[in-house]
Simulated scan of single mutants.
Amino acid sequence: MTITDGFSSEIGSLRAGPFDLGYRIEGNGMPVLIVGSAIYYPRTFSRALREKLRLIFIDHRGFAPARATFAAADIGFDTVLDDIERMRVHLGLERFAVLGHSGHGYMALEYAKRQPQHVSHVVMVGTGPSHSLAHLTLADRLWEETAAPERKAIFDKEMSELASDIAARPDERFKSLLIRLGAKSWHQPDFDASALWRGVTVNNPVFDHLWGETFRDIDIRKHLNALTAPVLLALGRSDYLVAPASTWDEYRADFTDLTVRMFEKSGHTPQLEESALFDEVLLSFLNPGNVRA
Rank of each mutant, 00 (worst) to 15 (best):
L241N: 05
K152P: 06
V32D: 00
V291H: 11
L21Y: 01
G29L: 01
A97K: 00
T44W: 01
E51K: 13
D279L: 03
L162P: 04
L196W: 02
T69R: 15
L286G: 00
L196R: 02
A195V: 11
N225C: 11
E158C: 11
S160G: 15
L162I: 07
L272Q: 14
L272Y: 09
D190P: 07
A168W: 08
Q271P: 03
T2C: 09
A38D: 05
A64F: 02
I220P: 00
D239T: 10
W186I: 03
L272P: 01
F63Y: 12
A66D: 06
G199F: 08
F19N: 00
L232K: 00
G182I: 03
L210V: 01
I58L: 08
V119E: 02
W211Q: 11
L138H: 15
I154R: 09
T269I: 14
V119N: 02
A66N: 05
L55G: 00
K265M: 12
Y23W: 08
M124F: 07
I84V: 14
A276R: 12
F77G: 02
T2Q: 15
K175F: 02
F278L: 02
I218Y: 06
L138D: 13
H223Y: 12
D249H: 13
S120V: 05
I56A: 01
Q188T: 14
E144I: 10
G126M: 05
E274Y: 02
F191W: 09
S275H: 06
D217F: 10
L53M: 05
